[in-house]
Design a protein around this nucleic acid. Structure first.
Lengths: 252, 252
DNA sequence: CGTTATCATGCAGGATCATGCAACCATGCT
DNA sequence: AGCATGGTTGCATGATCCTGCATGATAACG
């Protein structure tokens, strides 16, 4: 087996099992532990895994998905969230997608705001507890754990039965060709239901999402009426400006 | 198990259960207490937890203030919760009402348990995030802020459409004459829907609820098959023992 | 105040690691 | 063909880390 091939094998195994024990891999591949150790050392130097005594662990701990995602760009998310919170007018019905940016939006809501918020995220709903003036409509369904939102036919039906003024949509990719994308097919379907239920759609996009695409397409960028991005992010001129149906872009 | 992995495991467990007892972890991981103690000491040195006599506590801003949990001794609610968690068998479908006692139940669930949990509480649903083996069905509806559960026709319909093996019901009063009671009419109606959807109902009752009644009646005590109460609580002989349809009483 | 549990420390055995060295192989050049 | 070169592998060695046990110190509790 080639060295590079073996390293790829180790990485694949690591991401599958969540840990690597050097001695076990040596036995499995019929090689000395020294060789495995050297591989692990190289991979760690490349930043592809975390070397620990006895083996290796994946860099992105799989056990804390949401809590670590929340600490990604906290200050930036708060800026986007503050701008978004100001877009909600009293009395409006607003759909809030899941995600840490929208969680920041909840925290940025002005005290005493009277509005109706519809969400399929239990985390968002729980965070709305202190906002006495806000009526919360929670959309039920099977919980999709990775994003912590409900999905499936029940959730879709819940959104189909209502009309909202605004919708804050979460996406994992904004791409000139692929449009709005996300990582899961079921989730993409629900997001389409969100869009269909709202008169106006707003996307808060951290810089890492701009210009990227995820596997599952929600729809074209034109579905979004307003895009809130960071002032220091990529130049939106790089992507589909010039077309008539482009979303309005707010830089904060 | 790798040392670094074990430390991550301890941290994850701590953030989930809110408390670590060194001796328990040693037994669970089949290692000496010395090793666990060393792990905890290292983690404390890194500022990742608060070391206390007998175990460790989280120092991240947990929602319940630290003063209320500054002791390792399991609070009363946690004792009830641990007993209740042991009543859930793998594969069962369980309805979980809202409330802090049931939140403690979620934290007391054994790791890796495979079951389906149905709830109308976004807080409960959010707390189930780390339990990868548990399928969560969230019942939607209008959020009743005081109890942080959904209520109304939509929620009732959600429960009407399913059958569960078990139901953990939250009440604010258990009274020989009034039966099971709660503080809100809508909530009482939903609780009846919970009971109707489950084959067996269990109530975890802290001592302050026993012998009291709230304005809105859910139903007679006989609807409950098992009652879990604190060993040091009021003598259940004070209330409707002797009748044939009384719930089984577990004192912990 | 006494009992019990928990803790810190030192030590020993074993596992794991980094380093240097030699053997081996493929490749390219003379 | 003959040789140099670079890369890979296995082994030996001393260093380092992890773990369990023993010991005395300390904290919790009645």
């Amino acid at each position: 087996m080639l060295t590079a091939q073996r390293k790829a094998h180790l990485l694949a195994r690591l991401s599958r099992t969540g840990r690597l024990v050097a001695a076990d891999e040596a036995r499995a591949l019929k090689l000395s532990e020294d060789t495995i150790r050297r591989d692990l050392r190289d991979l760690a130097a490349e930043g592809l895994l975390l070397r620990v005594h006895g083996g290796a662990l994946p860099l992105s701990p799989t056990h804390t998905p949401l809590s670590t995602r929340a600490t990604l760009h906290p200050a930036l998310k708060d800026r986007l969230a503050a701008r978004a919170a100001a877009m909600i007018r009293p009395g409006q019905t607003v759909i809030l997608d899941g995600g840490t940016t929208h969680l920041a939006l909840v925290r940025a809501l002005p005290e005493g705001l009277c509005a109706t918020i519809v969400t399929h995220s239990p985390v968002i709903a729980a965070a709305l507890e202190p906002h006495a003036g806000i009526a919360v409509l929670l959309i039920g369904g099977r919980l999709f754990r990775h994003s912590m939102v409900t999905t499936g036919a029940v959730a879709a039906e819940g959104f189909a039965r209502l009309r909202a003024d605004l919708c804050f949509l979460g996406v994992t990719g904004l791409h000139p060709d692929a449009g709005l994308t996300t990582g899961d097919a079921e989730e993409a379907a629900i997001k389409r239901a969100l869009l269909a239920a709202a008169g106006e759609a707003i996307v808060l996009a951290t810089p890492d999402k701009i210009g990227t695409a995820s596997p599952h397409i929600i729809g074209p960028l034109a579905l979004v009426s307003t895009l809130v991005i960071a002032a220091e992010g990529p130049d939106p001129g790089l992507w589909p400006c010039g077309t008539s149906s482009v979303p309005e872009i707010l830089r904060v």
